[in-house]
Simulated scan of single mutants.
Amino acid sequence: MKRFLRLTLISTFAGLFSIGMANAATFDYAAIADAPPGEMGGQPLIHSDGGITVEARGYLSGAPTAAYLDSGSAGMGVCSTGLTGTLQCVSPSDDNVTSDETLELTFNKIVTIDSIAFADSVHGTAGLVGGVLALTIDGSPILGGMSLDPADWGLFAGLTGTVFEFSYVDTQFYLEAITVSAVPLPPALLLFGAALAGLGWIGRRRKQS
């Protein structure tokens, strides 16, 4: 029994430690769209990596439509003209984030953006220079928006939340890729978990005696 309790405590502490550490995940939407099953739309489109899951959704003027993976080194956009039976966008040109559209990413845990990349309407980056998008995190808008200029992508690093809404302002764009890290649990919460494990061990000892 003592060996069982010892193993239980070890596994509990190991679990708490792993939860407290930050997990990283990369969602390369351009690469995903270029690999089987390829270009497609959905509401939501769900992907997982490194223990982090993200759901992508599209909106037109606030109404649900479809998130869309566009192939050809593009990435994730929005299709608001509807999907065919094979999940292709009815209008082939309606596959990025454009006027009145929003691309929403919802993560299964609190994350911090490590890096991000966008593509313009012709799957390059030149058209992004001077462009701006609106960004709302967990319902709070970033005042003034965020620059789409590749030279400014580093400004996204460190932004933290669960729900990220990327909306059109003046430039069509795709979300090409995003890398995030899960926010580790606070030390106080880990100590609380360890204390619970200790109380459980004490309770077992009392029952035995």
Rank of each mutant, 00 (worst) to 15 (best):
A56L: 13
A56W: 04
R57V: 09
G58I: 09
G58N: 07
G58M: 06
G58D: 05
Y59H: 04
L60I: 05
S61A: 15
G62H: 04
P64E: 09
P64K: 00
A66Y: 15
A66F: 15
A67N: 09
A67P: 08
Y68P: 10
Y68G: 08
L69T: 03
D70K: 14
D70I: 03
D70Y: 04
D70Q: 13
S71V: 03
S71F: 01
G72F: 12
S73H: 07
A74C: 10
A74Y: 01
G75P: 02
G75A: 01
G75Q: 00
M76E: 05
G77H: 08
G77E: 00
V78D: 00
V78R: 00
V78G: 00
C79W: 06
C79Y: 02
C79D: 04
C79Q: 01
S80M: 00
T81L: 01
T81F: 05
T81W: 01
G82S: 13
G82F: 05
G82V: 13
L83T: 03
L83Q: 07
T84K: 02
G85F: 08
L87N: 12
L87K: 13
Q88C: 05
C89S: 09
V90A: 15
V90E: 12
S91Y: 11
S91C: 01
S91I: 12
P92T: 10
P92C: 02
P92Y: 10
S93T: 15
S93F: 14
D94W: 09
D94F: 13
D94P: 07
D95V: 13
N96E: 03
V97R: 05
V97Q: 08
T98H: 14
S99V: 12
D100N: 13
E101R: 10
E101V: 02
E101M: 13
E101L: 04
E101T: 04
T102S: 04
T102D: 02
L103N: 07
L103P: 09
L103Q: 08
E104N: 05
E104H: 02
T106L: 11
T106Q: 07
N108E: 08
N108C: 14
N108D: 14
K109D: 03
K109S: 12
I110W: 09
I110L: 13
T112G: 13
I113M: 15
D114M: 14
D114S: 14
S115R: 15
S115L: 12
S115H: 08
S115N: 15
I116T: 11
I116G: 10
I116L: 14
A117C: 01
A117H: 00
A117Q: 04
A117R: 03
